[in-house]
Amino acid sequence: MAIEIVIGLPHLNEGPVLARARSMVQPALISANALSRWSKVRGWPEWRGWRLGQLGNAQGLSSLDLDSAGFVAMKRYGGYAWTVDDYFRLASAYPFRRIASLDYCTEHEIAGEREEVLDRISRTIRANRDCRDRARDLGLADRFMPVLQGRMPVDYERCAEGLWWSMQPGTVVGVGSMCRREVAGPAGLVAVVEHLDRILPAGVRLHIFGAKGAALPWLKGFGDRVASIDSQAYGIAARRDAHRRHVSKTDVLVADHLQRWTRLQFQRLREPARRMAPNVPPAISNPPLDRWEAAIAIARAEVRALIESGDLDHEEVTIGWIEQWAADILSAA
């Protein structure tokens, strides 16, 4: 079964990009942020709901997937501007093929410290549970796509364990925080996929968000485990091309790069499958903790468990709250 190439669309405006995507008969993906309405009346961006009318322009695409725009939300706005209910109002407004869960990305520019990575994995587990429940309520469970997050390969395993209910044969699971990741290396894209291939049940397939096209020959080596990839890398190529030639980055130029990029991916898929030597992940150092640091670690672990189970809203958690929890642990010792 061939890996499917999914085109990441920058918008759903009628014009050259959308027309080219239709003519290519390729599955497409749109970000929730691309369908958002924003206002700067008060001097800063305020989210004002969805531009649902644009969804009518998606007619004629072979299929359309919906992404929650996790990285953009964290990078530009410091978090999601929309709730789970908001997101599923959008998800239920069009027959999307796949509806990706909200998730909490772990790129270095978003999560600089190890504890923050672990916190974001727990938040991702909770977000998946909330999105699954809403998808069931709305009759969209068959289109819901769980999403895994992590930094190291073992992090993705931890996330998959928290989402055990979704790891069923026939399920396509999204793998996040991939678009800025190197292909090789102990924490590279291939190492993550290799680890998931070993620990996930047979029949669970992966969609790699933002995978580098250069990874395709390596991903072919995992047989049917990898279902699809998506990317908007052609937009970056169009920007560079316009800058180099001192021309405007028009939608016609972007459409040309879209088609060129897609052809290149199919060329890569025709290359022989490649396999890398197994990587040994670097050990995660755990320096000795004093009593206060140990209490903080216990408090964080207990809070993460409550977030994952749905007994605590992660928005309620603050550093002061964690410290008070740790102080209670020490006083009870």
Score class of each variant (00 low, 15 high):
1 M>R: 14
2 A>N: 14
6 V>D: 02
8 G>E: 03
11 H>W: 02
16 P>V: 09
19 A>V: 10
23 S>V: 00
25 V>N: 15
35 L>N: 04
36 S>N: 11
37 R>I: 13
38 W>D: 02
49 G>V: 07
50 W>N: 11
51 R>M: 02
52 L>P: 00
55 L>K: 07
59 Q>K: 13
59 Q>L: 08
60 G>L: 03
61 L>Q: 09
61 L>F: 04
61 L>M: 09
69 A>V: 02
69 A>F: 02
75 K>Y: 09
82 W>R: 12
85 D>G: 12
86 D>A: 04
86 D>E: 06
88 F>M: 13
88 F>E: 06
90 L>K: 05
96 F>G: 05
100 A>C: 10
105 C>V: 15
110 I>N: 00
111 A>T: 08
117 V>T: 04
135 A>P: 06
135 A>T: 09
143 R>E: 04
166 S>A: 15
174 G>Q: 07
180 R>C: 07
190 V>T: 06
191 A>T: 00
193 V>C: 10
195 H>K: 15
204 V>P: 06
207 H>A: 10
209 F>T: 00
210 G>M: 01
214 A>E: 15
222 F>R: 13
224 D>R: 14
231 S>H: 08
243 H>W: 12
246 H>E: 12
247 V>S: 13
251 D>S: 11
253 L>P: 06
253 L>K: 05
255 A>T: 09
262 T>P: 00
269 L>Q: 11
272 P>K: 02
276 M>C: 06
279 N>T: 07
282 P>R: 14
292 W>V: 10
293 E>A: 15
293 E>Y: 01
299 A>V: 13
302 E>M: 14
304 R>P: 01
309 S>R: 15
310 G>N: 09
312 L>D: 03
313 D>R: 11
315 E>A: 13
315 E>K: 03
323 E>Q: 15
325 W>G: 09
329 I>E: 01
